[in-house]
């Protein structure tokens, strides 16, 4: 059974390199956005940038993975997040999402864990900051087995 989190606990994390080819594909999966500043150097220049910049949603995907790994169903079914993208991310950057528990409370009879979030680049710069809320971690991974009934 997953151990309950307490204030000060850090979430287990991982590091990913931002690859330009995957940035381009990210702009095409699910919704093809066409050429833009995340996928096309010329479009980036038209938008005022010197080179392509990763989309904020790229970092949101890393937050999701961090929270899925650490909370399981407690994140996937009802989790909430507030994130701000505060520093640009470029191809070749290595990103590590972090989470630290800042509060454990009970709301309407259910546990609610508040987690301070941030994404750190290889040089220590924070590219994103935020907060997430979820129940205490669960061992269940229902979405992988086809979802909750």
């Amino acid at each position: 059974m997953a151990a309950p989190l307490k204030v000060g606990d850090r979430l287990a994390s991982f590091t990913r390199e931002i690859e330009e080819q995957k940035m381009i594909l990210f702009e095409r999966v699910v919704w093809d956005r066409g050429s833009n500043s995340h996928s096309d150097p010329e479009a980036a220049k038209r938008d005022g940038m010197s080179k392509v910049i990763a989309s904020g949603q790229n970092q949101m995907a890393f937050y999701h993975e961090l929270l899925e790994r650490n909370f399981g169903d407690a994140w996937v079914y009802g989790g909430r997040i507030s994130a701000r993208y505060i520093h640009p991310v470029y191809p070749g950057d290595k990103l590590t999402p972090h989470g630290e528990v800042t509060e454990v409370a009970e709301v309407d009879g259910k546990p609610l864990v508040t987690v301070k979030l941030w994404v750190e680049k290889q040089d220590g710069t924070k590219s994103s900051v935020g907060t997430a809320w979820a129940g205490q971690p669960s061992d269940e991974r229902s979405w992988i087995e086809g979802g909750k009934a």
Binding site: R16, K22, L25, F26, V29, V30, W31, R33, Q57, N58, M60, A61, F62, H64, E65, E68, V76, R141, W143, I144
Partner: peptide, 15 residues
């Protein structure tokens, strides 16, 4: 693309 073989919310990329 995101390197997460069990990612729950592909809607993130649907914006």
């Amino acid at each position: 693309v995101v390197g997460n073989p069990t990612a729950a919310y592909p809607t993130v990329a649907a914006r």
